[in-house]
Design a protein around this nucleic acid. Structure first.
Lengths: 235, 235
DNA sequence: ACTTGAACCTCCCGCAACGGGAGGTCCTAC
DNA sequence: GTAGGACCTCCCGTTGCGGGAGGTTCAAGT
């Protein structure tokens, strides 16, 4: 009967000696025999088990799952099915991440990346996953450029409104009222007019009046929202 | 200026208090202030950083990558591109695993699962990744049933050859010679006639003459291969 | 028979990103 | 003034090994 030394077995199986030690330690693949001096001797039976372990590992099972799988052969199928489900789920998640990242990358300049992410992150606390999906798919439907256009328009609007505030233009001034109308129009394009999403956005604003504005990089809660609200009331 | 307690910030951000401790420990998001008694006070600036960290984490970056990304904004794009590449690769790997597992599951009975895996595992030590891909794609091309048919034929062949050996039929007997021809034919179907793959298979046999046969569950190296070799020589 | 270098042995620390508990202090509300 | 949260700082555990220290043993060459 051939016995294998740990080094030879490592070479044959493509695993490292350290890994074999580890499997021995946790009792997953134990060398059935030892020389008098304590060197491990793997029997063909041990080798066979090691190859089984290796195959199961290559399917992505954890060492614990491998142990269970090898303990009773009738547990193989359910474990495999669970693993298949897990892999399917994982594939979807990875794919979702990948497409988000890809979309981000080809639609943004370096500078806008972080702030965009930050806003998304903040908003994700307030929208449900479905609503976010909705927002994203709407963005996808509008197309990259259209979304960029909306963002630029919004930044432009904010700039003009702030200018008027600084100039002391009353909120009832027709120019400001017009800007507030554009503000709502833009918001409608983003939210798609969905009242639930608008409500969530509104809630987001209220709960973060000061916090959010600081986070986004505005000097502080400068009353812009109140200003717009006044202008809207004047319509 | 609003300061946030760690608990409130945890609730607002959806992270756990423990996570915030962790980020503080490793210096990723540190509470800039402390009360006299040592309680953390997060400034709006800290909160903003936390949200940035959260967004980057949601893209699958490691904490170290996040740290780098936030250190200089010009490192964002390369990091994102690397992450996209990593995700793409991961997606492919997961998908490969998934399809292998799915194929295994709907093509095998519970009992045959382990031994099939085991054989694959053993062979994977002797074939290169490309050759294995080749074998798998060939198997896919032949279709599930055809592959099953080949396997059954092979088992049948082995059974008959063993019978002849047990009966003492000489290897030069025409019936045995015919079986050896079928053996080679079957092998050619599996290997697709690729000499490199055939050589690898041959090498596999030689290096494992005794070990492999025991691993696969055969009583021992019973000389079947030699017997076939003799029969082949008689052709 | 002796030496030497490779292979082997047993601890033990380390990784990523936290989870969770112990044991103590603090804050806030009644 | 007291209860019960919320907060603090250690510290151990997780997964699947990698890698090093420090010591023993094996196999081959002289």
């Amino acid at each position: 009967m051939t016995r294998w030394s740990i080094g030879d077995l490592a070479k044959a199986s493509g695993l490292t000696v350290r890994t074999l030690y580890h499997y021995d330690e946790i009792g997953l693949v134990v060398a059935s025999e030892r020389t008098t001096s304590g060197h491990r001797r793997y029997t063909p039976e041990d080798v066979r088990r090691l190859y089984q372990v290796r195959s199961l590992r290559q399917l992505g099972l954890s060492l614990d799952e491998v142990r269970t799988a090898l303990s009773r052969s009738d547990s193989l199928r359910p474990i495999f099915e669970a693993q298949l489900a897990a892999l399917t789920k994982q594939a979807q998640q990875v794919e979702a991440l990948r497409s988000r990242l890809a979309a981000l990358l080809d639609g943004h300049t370096t500078e806008s990346l972080l702030s965009t992410l930050e806003m998304m992150s903040v908003y994700e606390s307030y929208f449900t996953a479905d609503q976010l999906d909705d927002l994203r798919s709407r963005a996808a439907a509008l197309g990259q450029e259209a979304v960029e256009g909306l963002k630029t328009s919004w930044l432009e609007l904010v700039k003009q409104l702030r200018q008027h505030m600084a100039d002391g233009t009353p909120a009832t001034d027709p120019r400001v009222v017009e800007l507030s109308r554009q503000w709502d129009e833009l918001g409608a394009k983003f939210t798609g007019g969905d009242p639930a999403i608008q409500a969530a956005a509104q809630r987001s604003w209220e709960e973060n009046k000061s916090a959010i504005s600081t986070q986004i990089g505005w000097p502080s809660d400068d009353g812009l929202v109140d200003y717009v609200n006044q202008a809207r009331a004047a319509r």
